[in-house]
Lab assay of single mutants.
Amino acid sequence: LSQDQINEYKECFSLYDKQQRGKIKATDLMVAMRCLGASPTPGEVQRHLQTHGIDGNGELDFSTFLTIMHMQIKQE
């Protein structure tokens, strides 16, 4: 990932990090990914979360979000 991409991801991540705690809700993951041009299915989002041990009510930090985005873009 280039620095530009990382900055773009950070900007989008921040939109969903409403309390500015450095985390977004798992329920916002799909929308955040789509905001960056990825098109994950609900099943793919579920798999990404399970891979990282996050349940549907959990939260993920930016580095986890980056990893998930990277995996998603590689497979699209």
Rank of each mutant, 00 (worst) to 15 (best):
L1I: 14
L1P: 03
Q3N: 08
Q3R: 10
Q3C: 05
Q3T: 10
Q3I: 12
D4R: 03
D4M: 10
D4T: 06
D4S: 09
Q5R: 12
I6C: 02
I6D: 07
I6Y: 10
N7F: 08
N7H: 12
E8W: 07
E8S: 15
E8Q: 11
E8C: 10
Y9K: 02
Y9A: 14
Y9M: 15
Y9R: 02
Y9I: 14
K10C: 08
K10L: 11
K10R: 13
K10V: 08
E11Q: 14
C12V: 12
C12A: 15
C12M: 15
C12K: 13
C12H: 08
F13M: 01
F13Q: 00
F13N: 00
F13L: 02
F13H: 01
S14A: 05
S14Q: 10
S14M: 10
L15I: 13
L15Q: 09
Y16S: 02
Y16E: 01
D17E: 06
D17A: 06
D17Q: 03
K18C: 08
K18H: 06
K18A: 06
Q19A: 08
Q19T: 08
Q19E: 09
Q19G: 08
Q19R: 08
Q19F: 05
Q20R: 11
Q20C: 13
Q20G: 12
R21E: 11
G22E: 06
G22K: 08
G22R: 04
G22W: 02
G22Q: 05
G22A: 04
K23F: 10
K23R: 13
I24R: 00
I24Y: 00
I24L: 07
K25A: 11
K25V: 09
K25R: 09
A26K: 04
A26C: 14
A26S: 12
A26H: 04
T27A: 11
T27S: 09
T27E: 13
D28Y: 07
D28C: 09
L29T: 04
L29M: 08
L29R: 00
L29S: 01
L29F: 01
L29Q: 00
L29G: 00
L29V: 09
M30D: 13
M30G: 15
M30S: 14
V31L: 12
V31R: 10
A32K: 00
A32S: 06
M33N: 00
M33L: 09
M33F: 04
M33V: 02
R34W: 03
C35D: 15
C35F: 12
C35I: 10
C35R: 14
L36C: 12
L36N: 08
G37L: 04
G37Q: 06
G37S: 09
G37C: 05
A38K: 08
A38Q: 11
S39V: 08
S39F: 05
P42R: 15
G43Q: 07
G43D: 09
G43I: 04
E44M: 03
L49V: 03
L49E: 00
L49Q: 15
L49K: 04
H52N: 03
G53V: 01
I54V: 09
G56A: 14
G56V: 14
G56M: 15
G56K: 15
N57M: 07
G58Y: 01
G58W: 01
E59S: 06
E59R: 04
E59N: 15
E59T: 14
E59K: 05
L60I: 11
L60C: 10
L60K: 00
L60R: 00
D61N: 15
D61Q: 02
D61K: 15
F62W: 12
F62Y: 08
F62K: 02
F65A: 03
F65M: 03
F65I: 02
L66K: 15
L66H: 02
I68F: 07
I68P: 00
I68L: 07
I68K: 00
M69K: 01
M69F: 06
M69A: 11
M69H: 06
H70D: 03
H70Y: 07
H70A: 05
M71L: 12
K74V: 02
K74W: 06
Q75H: 03
E76C: 10
E76T: 11
E76K: 08
E76P: 14
E76R: 13
E76N: 08
E76I: 12
